[in-house]
Amino acid sequence: MRLQVSRVSNSARHAAVPLGWLLVLGLAIAWLPEAEAWFRQVAPNSRSVIYQRDGFLDLVLQHLRLVGAASLVAVVVGVGASILVTRPLGQDFLPLVAQLASMGQTFPPVAVLALSVPMLGFGTQPTLLALVLYGLLPIVRNTLVGLQGIDPTVLEAARGMGMSNRQVLWQVELPLAARVILAGIRTSVTINIATAAIGSTIGAKTLGDPIIAGISNGNNAYILQGAILIALLALFIDSLFERLSRLFQ
């Protein structure tokens, strides 16, 4: 009985971490516009010290939407492709995909942006493309590692018991690989929260806006505001994943 009580309060404590970060993020959004005196010290020579072209809440939500959409696509495509190339039918493509996955992360997202602008123009779409490509790689890599790391005798037993291929995938492979796959998604999302900011250089609305504006005007206060919000957003989302990954232990 006592054990059970302590387990409940334990899980309440873990849920408290993401909630805590959410609270800090909320407080930051509310406090930043009021902290003029404070930011004045960071940028004493600037006319305005609080970024005002868009509300911070609006920027946070836009940023999240962009990252969320990109991550969703990256998860579906990345996990899907990894599953396909670990089936007998797609086996021929496994080396190619594995190589792309390990190579791709060395390709800087700025370069993807620069290359995609001529095709997709300015704005959200090229940013989305860059984020999807960049976010795909940790997901593919981890999904492959997760699926290939399963003890082959477990798979043999699953087939030997009479599971269909689909049952083996859903009941055995994906649950056993889930933790590693989730870790890949976590890396992907966290990296992309930071990476999305560069979308502001080509006209996507993100938390990079105050940073870019700050850089071009030599206004350190703007830069700081964007950076604080990006960091808090990343910490909040990461703590959510941390919480989620506990479910798979």
């Binding site: 005798t153 477990v154 037993a157 087939r159 030997g160 018991m161 055995v172 056993l176």
Partner: peptide, 30 residues
Amino acid sequence: PQALRRRIGYAIQSTGLFPHWSVARNIGTV
């Protein structure tokens, strides 16, 4: 093949137990 395997018991050296399932759930697989 699936129907065939469900009517034949199969046990292997390293047991091949499903590590994410309890003993009861493992036994109830077929």
